[in-house]
Computed example of a mutant assay.
Amino acid sequence: MARRDLTGAVDFAYLESYAAGDLVVVHEVLELFRQQAGLWAPLLTPGADGWRDAVHTIKGTARGIGARDLAQVCEEAELAGEGRLPAVRDALDAALADVAAYVHELMLQCLKTPSNRG
C-alpha cells in the first residue's frame, strides 16, 4: 500500500497545512485516529448503545483530519438515524484505507531519507 493507493477519502494536504507541514504531528494525529476508530467501530451497528456519541465523535475527528465525506455521512446519520450506520462504516473504512496508504508512504520516505545523524 502506498500513496498511489489513495482514494481521496482524506484530504492530506489539508491536514499537512493544519499541522504547519510537521509530518511528525501529522503521523501522530493519524495514529490517534486509527486507534480511536478501533474503539468506535463496534458502536456503528444499529441498536448499539452509544452509536450517536460515536458518530458525533467521528464527525468531529473526520473534519479535523480532512475526511470530509466521512464527516458528511456522520452528520447525515445524526439526523436520519441508525439506518445510515452502514454508510458511516463504509466511509470510515475508506478513510482508514487512505490513512494506511499515507502512513505507509511516510514510513517509506523515512527509509529513503538519509539521517542527519553523524
Rank of each mutant, 00 (worst) to 15 (best):
D98C: 03
L70A: 00
L43M: 15
Q35D: 11
G60T: 14
T7S: 15
G64Q: 08
V88M: 13
K112C: 12
L44R: 00
A37M: 06
C74K: 03
L43H: 09
V99N: 02
D90A: 15
A54H: 01
V26D: 02
S17P: 06
A101R: 05
A19G: 03
E28H: 13
V103Y: 08
A101M: 07
A87I: 01
V24H: 05
E105V: 10
V99D: 00
S115P: 03
G38K: 10
A67R: 01
G60Q: 10
L106V: 02
L85I: 07
T7C: 00
L39V: 13
M107L: 11
I58N: 01
R63Y: 04
R34P: 04
F12K: 05
S115L: 06
D11F: 01
L15G: 02
Q72P: 01
R52C: 07
E31H: 09
A2H: 08
Y18D: 02
T45A: 11
H56D: 05
A19I: 04
L108Y: 10
D22S: 07
G118I: 09
E82F: 01
V73Q: 08
W40Q: 05
L108T: 15
C110V: 14
L111H: 13
E16G: 05
A80P: 12
L23V: 04
T57G: 09
A54W: 08
A77H: 01
R34V: 15
T57H: 04
M1K: 09
D98M: 05
E75K: 01
E28M: 11
R52G: 03
E31I: 12
S115M: 11
L30V: 09
L70W: 00
Q36C: 07
L44P: 00
L30Q: 05
G118S: 14
D90L: 14
L108S: 10
A9N: 04
M1N: 07
R3P: 06
E78S: 11
R3D: 14
A41S: 14
P86H: 05
L79M: 12
